[in-house]
């Protein structure tokens, strides 16, 4: 029995493993030097990069990704910071082009209501069911001792 469960788990993990996409690279390499004179700007740069999703490799932020597009977006963040843009302006620039999807923490809206509140909703339902079960058991008469 436990072996069957183990086999099922292995299969599930295998099915969920990301398929490594063959990455095509442009010959244009926009590598750049992300150095800032102001340590505050450098900190904001790091924080913003962790918030922004790499669209090519969707489970990585642009801080972690080596995809050429991630490099381009990091450079965009860098240049905007150097020009004095606020964090909101930079996030706005990205979402205007790539949608809310580019943010790891999507904004709270009618569309994302279930995403944000779903876990609490499920917790509430589970709590209510548990409470009902406990109440019902308490209401049962003690089982008579069998001879």
């Amino acid at each position: 029995m436990s072996r069957t469960i183990l086999a099922a788990l292995v299969l599930m993990v295998a099915a969920l493993a990301p398929v490594a996409a063959a990455e095509e690279r442009s010959p244009i390499d926009n590598r750049f030097d992300a150095s800032f004179d102001d340590p505050k700007l450098a900190a904001r740069y790091e924080a913003l990069n962790r918030e922004l999703r790499c669209l090519v490799c969707q489970n990585q932020s642009i801080a972690d990704s080596h995809a050429p597009l991630a490099t381009d977006l990091r450079r965009q963040v860098h240049d905007m910071l150097e020009r004095g843009a606020t964090d909101a302006e930079i996030v706005g620039f990205m979402t205007a082009r790539y949608g809310d999807y580019v943010m790891y923490r999507p904004p709270f809206s009618a569309l994302t209501l279930l995403l944000w509140l779903g876990p609490f909703l499920l917790l509430g339902i589970a709590g209510a069911l548990w409470w009902r079960a406990v109440q019902r058991r308490a209401a049962l008469p003690d089982e008579p001792e069998l001879p």
Partner: peptide, 15 residues
């Protein structure tokens, strides 16, 4: 678009 900046403006993420 040599640098890819117009691509970013158009929300391009993969050709």
């Amino acid at each position: 678009d040599a640098t890819g900046s117009v691509g970013i403006d158009w929300g391009v993420y993969g050709a």
